[in-house]
Nucleic acid binder design. Structure first.
Length: 409
DNA sequence: TCTGGGGTCCTAGGACCC
DNA sequence: TCTGGGGTCCTAGGACCC
């Protein structure tokens, strides 16, 4: 039996992933301060190149702040297809070294090489091979952290950034943790950092030595985990098989704050369609509908309710969202709307019993097919287009040449 | 022209049931 | 005529992550 502390885990983290991919794709951007942003009018910086970070440009900044920090910043609209394509290629590279690969996010992965590292000349040699392969295939850099568990591998990759490779062995863990600020740990954010500071705990060393009773009384069940984290202990394994999703949702900050009912409905329909289509594509059905609203003053809240049956039908999601909306007295203009579907199960693919329902499902499948091939909202319900025009709203992806009408019979 | 979008997990309180 | 307690489901909000 293998001790959990003696595992060998690699954390592979792309350096400024979206920005690096854009710089590789467009030579004129190389060596320049760039910021990758969304397409909306009120977007923020998603990723800043290292050249831009030198000027203080950070993820989450709005355009205005970013430009103030770095006037020559070049803004590039995100190209998600490029990033997902690259991500798939990365997965292929990782799988050469171990079957235990967890794609944690689009730019981060964990590899458990405990059983295979000896076949490739050891953990560091695997790290070097991966860095080389990624550079050759995609022209981008990454950082590799190697450690006895996921928490430490992630920590070490953060420390070694950018373009780094570092291996922390079990005997080095204590020394590394002693003076490390607790905020550096994965799972400790601003709030917990603040609450720990009140207790006089600032470093991981202090956290690891703090009395269990104190931590338990302040943080409940999470107190034990915190103490273990302070000592660099983590029992979470690399999960090669993705877990089933718990929720599927979409939200959008609107081009401008709105209050008008027809406009709200048009956006809710659009979001419901995005949610329904994704659920159908991935074979999920859900029972809980969640509506999220953010007012102009940024106050954000949600309302949810359970349906009688599981669904992934756009119209059911939309009707659920409208019912929730009807229960809210809007006190201000709306800045953001979100719709999500949770309490998910796998769609059993049962043939609907009722003929009319069967026809509608066939139409949904046809719409999904066309939308997948030609992009979102090229094809949509006639009622939605009518609604959109009526409300005078042009959605970002709405193109006159792409609009076709659909006949439901 | 101030502040994106996609998630997960946990907690607390109320409803409801036995 | 005063009154328990446990368990589960549901909702709303918050912390955290990329």
């Amino acid at each position: 039996m293998v001790n959990i502390m003696s595992r060998i885990i690699l954390c592979i983290d792309m350096d400024a992933f979206f920005a690096s991919v854009e710089q590789k794709a467009n030579p004129r951007l190389r060596g320049k301060a760039i910021g990758v942003i969304g397409s909306g009018a009120r977007t923020v910086i998603t990723t800043a190149s290292y050249e831009a970070r030198k000027f203080g440009v950070k993820t989450g900044m709005n355009i205005w702040e970013a430009k103030k920090a770095c006037p020559h910043l070049i803004l590039v609209i995100a190209n998600n297809a490029r990033y997902t394509h690259t991500c798939k290629g990365l997965e292929e590279i990782y799988s050469r070294f171990t079957p235990d690969v967890e794609i944690y996010s689009i730019d981060e992965a964990f590899l458990d090489v405990t059983a295979t590292h000896h076949l490739f000349g050891g953990p560091e040699e695997i790290g070097r091979s991966i860095k080389r392969s990624i550079k050759e295939a995609f022209g981008i850099n990454c950082t590799v952290g190697i450690a006895p568990n996921i928490l430490l591998a992630k920590l070490v990759s953060d420390i070694a950034k950018p373009d780094g490779l570092r291996w922390i062995k079990p005997e080095d863990v204590e020394g590394l943790m002693e003076d490390l600020p607790v905020k550096e740990l994965w799972g400790i954010g601003a709030k917990i950092t603040e609450r720990l500071a009140v207790l006089g705990i600032r470093t991981c060393g202090e956290l690891g030595r703090a009395p269990s009773s104190l931590l338990r009384s302040k943080f409940g069940i999470y107190g034990e985990t915190l103490k273990a984290m302070g000592k660099g202990i983590c029992s979470r394994h690399v999960q090669a098989k993705p877990e089933d999703a718990r929720s599927i949702g979409h939200s959008m900050t609107l081009p401008r704050d709105i209050r008008e009912r027809k406009e709200i409905e048009a956006y809710l329909f659009k979001l419901s369609e995005m949610v329904g289509r994704r659920a159908r594509k991935h074979g999920y059905m859900g029972k809980t509908i969640v509506l999220v609203i953010r007012y102009a003053d940024f106050e954000t809240f949600s309302r949810q309710s359970m349906l009688l049956d599981f669904t992934n039908d756009t119209h059911d999601v939309y009707e659920g969202a409208i019912t929730l909306l009807n229960g809210i007295h809007l006190k201000d203009k709306i800045r953001l709307l979100g719709v999500s579907l949770s309490t998910l199960i796998h769609d059993p693919h049962q043939l609907p019993l009722i003929e009319e329902e069967r026809k509608r499902k066939a139409v949904l499948r046809a719409m999904d097919y066309v939308n997948d091939r030609y992009g979102e909202f090229k094809l949509t319900w006639g009622s939605y287009i009518a609604r959109e025009r009526e409300a005078g709203v042009i959605s970002p992806s709405w193109k006159p040449s792409g609009v076709k009408s659909v006949h439901l019979k």
